[in-house]
Amino acid sequence: MPELPEVETTVRGIAPHVEGQVIRQVVIRQPQLRWPVPVNLPEILPNLTIRSVSRRAKYLLISTDAGTIILHLGMSGSLRILPKEKPADKHDHIDFIFNNGTILRYNDPRRFGAVLWTTSSPAGHDLLKDLGPEPLSSDFDGMHLYRLSRNRKAPIKSFVMDGHVVVGVGNIYANEALFMAGIHPKRHAGRIALARYQLLADCIKTVLHSAIEQGGTTLRNFVNEAGNPGYFKQQLRVYGRAGQPCPHCLRPLTEIRVTNRSTVFCVNCQH
């Protein structure tokens, strides 16, 4: 599933190509995604100019003067910048065609993504209004985690993956950050001291920044706007490496399930 670094990579990749462009036509080939695609988009969007492309959590926000396209990549979605002559493939569900002849094409084999429209502020949308802070912002730090964690018995891994606590810390990056911070993934969130939360918050920021610099992580489907994979996979220290040596102590890494998610850690280095 594309996580925050993959979505941020997509935003940074498509923004220079679409900001300032005028939408000429919208083609919807498959309207049934996670939620139905608004049927009136082909009538609403033509002649509107894309003013900005941004991100909130794992949602892309494509803003115009009349409203905002809210787009989620789901489990397998991607956005590509293509010439208008490029024929559509099987899973190319939506095209945003611009006056300059380029296309922003949405591809989603599993159709768990979403393309929605709002004329109100996206911050107040039902999908966004209750989300926690961005992990790369100044609003997120160890004190924030410590304050929300008091009396919480949930495993720390589940806690940091809760979008109401902080957005965008998906399974891959939770594994990596907890390893970097030396925290056992099943440790109760309410039993972790402030100093360790300060370290964990810094590790989350470090892991996410590194992943963005590498263009995200490609495990199966993710590609950027040019169709290239992300390269952070080569830097993964624990995720997907069960049974292999720990990068620190060389003992075999252990895999367990935490809230039904694959979790890899070192029993010697993480406490």
Rank of each mutant, 00 (worst) to 15 (best):
C269Q: 03
L148G: 10
S137V: 08
A193L: 07
V223Q: 07
G124Y: 01
V7A: 03
D65Q: 08
L33D: 01
T259H: 14
L199V: 11
T102W: 10
R110P: 07
V264H: 10
P36I: 09
R12S: 08
A123P: 10
A195T: 11
N175A: 04
R251W: 04
G243S: 08
G243V: 00
A123Y: 08
I69C: 02
P133C: 11
A15K: 09
S121D: 15
I23A: 01
M75C: 05
L71V: 06
I172D: 01
P5L: 03
T119D: 04
R111L: 12
H188E: 14
T9D: 08
P155S: 03
V26C: 01
G74P: 06
H184M: 09
A123F: 09
L208S: 07
H93L: 10
A66P: 04
A57R: 01
H209V: 10
T254H: 15
E134R: 05
A88T: 13
P135Y: 00
F222N: 04
R111W: 06
I62M: 03
H271S: 13
A123V: 13
G240V: 01
L61N: 06
L60R: 02
I70G: 00
K84C: 02
L236M: 10
R111A: 10
T259R: 14
L219Q: 03
V39G: 15
L250W: 14
K233H: 15
D65M: 07
F159M: 06
G13C: 02
E213H: 10
A226N: 13
S76C: 09
G67L: 01
P36G: 08
K86Y: 12
M180A: 13
V26M: 02
G101Y: 12
W117P: 03
S137E: 13
N151L: 14
I103G: 06
I81K: 00
A226E: 14
V27K: 13
Q25I: 00
Q270S: 06
S78C: 11
T118N: 00
H125C: 02
G101E: 09
K157Y: 11
Q234R: 15
E6F: 04
S137M: 13
V223K: 09
L178C: 01
S262C: 12
A181M: 01
F112W: 14
K233L: 15
K205Q: 15
I62E: 01
I172M: 06
R150E: 14
G190V: 07
G243W: 02
L33M: 11
A154Q: 15
K233R: 14
A123M: 14
I44N: 00
P16K: 07
A201S: 13
G216C: 02
G190Y: 08
L200R: 03
S138C: 07
S63P: 07
S52N: 13
R80W: 10
I172L: 04
H144D: 08
S262P: 06
N268K: 14
D108F: 12
G124W: 00
R257D: 00
P252Y: 00
P247C: 12
R24F: 12
S210P: 03
H91F: 13
T206H: 15
K84R: 15
R196F: 07
I28G: 11
E213R: 12
Q214C: 14
V115A: 11
G170T: 05
L178E: 00
G215N: 07
L178A: 04
L236R: 04
I94F: 09
P16Q: 02
I69N: 00
Y173S: 03
